[in-house]
């Protein structure tokens, strides 16, 4: 079958402004959109740039907007689309070239939540004990692959006035450590999260949850952080 693509193009060195170009590729219905992108680049237009690495939704490299919705083209099959497929870079972040955006601000926010285990005591000789229920609480959050689809889809991050919001991905990583029974960094992290640019920036709009390629209940997890902070404050008077 023939698949038609309309792709956002921009080379800051050559192009005064972005434009769209249309391509047609011969594809199997079960081909990934990423396979089509590669075929376009290899056989039709070697100037097209996009990121990729694992090709099966584990590395998080190829986040982009597919018909307006942020997702991974390595997880989408041609047969799911009837008409022309529109591919654009992730919103929120600055375009470097074509479908590639500058993710440095994304990782900067990620780093700001102290994404590592903070402990109060020296580790034992063996493992720290953790019950299956305690680890089960983290299982959704640790599936995060940092593809940035959630943060790019968040209307709060998209709004220029509130773009300083940490965004869902950083909050999911904060959740992963806050609710880890081995972690003792609650107070330090709450100082970072208990701000209007922190967890209170979330307006519960569910866009992050809708697009997450790893099916993480992002909005619910942010809600649990909110509740945790609320409870901690109430308990502390």
């Amino acid at each position: 079958m023939a698949a038609r693509f309309r792709i956002f193009r921009f080379d800051p060195v050559l192009d005064p402004k972005p434009y769209y170009r249309t391509y047609e590729v011969d594809a199997e219905p079960t081909d990934r959109l990423l396979d089509c992108l590669n075929r376009i680049r290899w056989e039709q237009d070697p100037t097209l740039s996009f990121r990729m690495s694992c090709g099966h939704g584990v590395c998080g490299s190829d986040g982009m907007r597919i018909n307006g919705i942020c997702g991974l083209p390595c997880q989408k099959l041609v047969k799911s689309y009837d008409e022309e497929i529109l591919l654009e870079p992730l919103p929120v972040f600055q375009v470097i070239k074509d479908l590639i955006v500058d993710l440095e601000p994304f990782f900067e926010r990620y780093r700001s939540v102290k994404p590592y285990l903070i402990t109060a005591s020296l580790p034992p000789d063996g493992e720290r004990r953790q019950s299956p229920e305690e680890i089960h609480r983290l299982e959704d959050a640790v599936r995060c692959i940092l593809c940035a689809c959630c943060t790019s889809s968040c209307p709060v991050n998209q709004n220029a006035e509130t773009e300083a919001y940490l965004g869902p991905a950083a909050l999911v990583r904060a959740f992963r450590y806050l609710f880890d029974s081995r972690d003792a960094g609650m107070e330090e992290r709450i100082r970072i999260l208990d701000r209007k640019e922190g967890v209170w920036g979330c307006q519960t709009l569910w866009k992050c949850t809708e697009v997450c390629p790893k099916e993480i209940p992002v909005t619910k997890q942010i809600g649990q952080i909110k509740k945790n902070i609320y409870d901690a404050k109430k308990a502390g008077g």
Binding site: Q130, P132, I135, E139, D180
Partner: peptide
């Protein structure tokens, strides 16, 4: 090497008594 990863925070699956 495993205990070291656990101490760094790797979220290992657990047995009923809390071991890796």
């Amino acid at each position: 090497a495993i205990y070291e990863l656990e101490h760094m925070g790797v979220p290992f699956s657990r047995t009923d008594d809390g071991r890796i």
